[in-house]
Simulated scan of single mutants.
Amino acid sequence: MKKLILLLLLIYPMTAVAETYEWVDERGTVNFAEDLGKVPKKYRKKAKRLGSDEPPAEIAPPAAVPDTAKPKGVEEKVEKKSYGGKDELAWRREFLQANSNLQSAQTELDTLKARLSDTSSMSRSEYLIIQNSIKHAEARVQALQKKLDQLNASADRYEVPAEFRK
């Protein structure tokens, strides 16, 4: 029974796509956030993205126009273009997450199929469990592909540029 449970845990690895940031405040308390925007400004430079050696991407303030370019007393409004109520960053994140989820599911499916290539040392129950897992993984890949297709259709409807879909 323990082998079966261990096998099931190995078959369905939990994958996380979300980024998590960690920082220590002035009291020495370790804090976590799923979005760099939720990290207080004074700790953003010290925040670490968990699971990565890369420093976190900076949240850039709107581009400043040199004072000489603006007439005095006139403030310039920086408008972010919106596509269907979402800005560029939201579209990029959605596509990144959808593509990442699909790639992860496809990798899991490929791994399961590879495990069936040598069934000589496998019991009948292990073989059946893997076959059943393959069916579930195929269904998951199809569902994620459908979700990505719907996202692409929505992006087409709102004329989202192709460079946001990478």
Rank of each mutant, 00 (worst) to 15 (best):
Q103R: 13
E75Y: 10
T68V: 12
D110S: 13
L36C: 08
S154V: 00
V74P: 01
L116Y: 04
Y158V: 01
T20I: 11
G51T: 02
P40L: 09
Y43E: 03
E108D: 05
E76A: 14
E138F: 00
S104H: 09
K2G: 12
G28H: 06
K146D: 09
L128N: 14
V30I: 15
N152E: 12
D156V: 00
A114W: 01
N101F: 01
R44A: 12
E159Q: 15
K42D: 08
E22P: 00
L9Y: 10
L116I: 07
K166P: 01
K146T: 11
E22I: 05
I11C: 09
T68N: 13
T20K: 03
K41L: 13
L36T: 08
V65R: 13
A57Q: 11
N132Y: 09
I5H: 14
L151T: 10
L9V: 06
L50A: 01
P13K: 15
Q97E: 11
W91H: 06
Q106E: 15
K38V: 07
W91E: 04
E94S: 07
A153F: 02
D67V: 08
E108I: 01
D110Y: 01
W91N: 02
L36V: 13
K146Q: 11
S117K: 14
K146H: 07
H136A: 13
Q150H: 05
P71E: 10
Q106L: 04
D25R: 09
N31I: 09
A57C: 07
N99Y: 02
R157A: 06
G73S: 13
A69D: 12
I129M: 15
G37E: 13
L8A: 09
P13T: 11
K86P: 00
A139V: 03
A33V: 02
Q103D: 10
L96K: 12
K48P: 01
S100Q: 08
P40S: 10
L151W: 02
M122C: 04
Q131C: 08
N31F: 08
A105L: 02
E159M: 09
G85F: 06
R27A: 15
L96R: 11
K48M: 03
M1P: 05
A60E: 15
E19Q: 12
G85M: 05
A18R: 10
R93N: 10
L109M: 11
V160S: 10
N101Q: 11
K147S: 14
T119W: 05
L144R: 12
T119N: 04
P13H: 13
P61A: 15
G84P: 00
E79C: 00
E19H: 05
L116P: 01
I129Q: 09
G51R: 04
D110F: 02
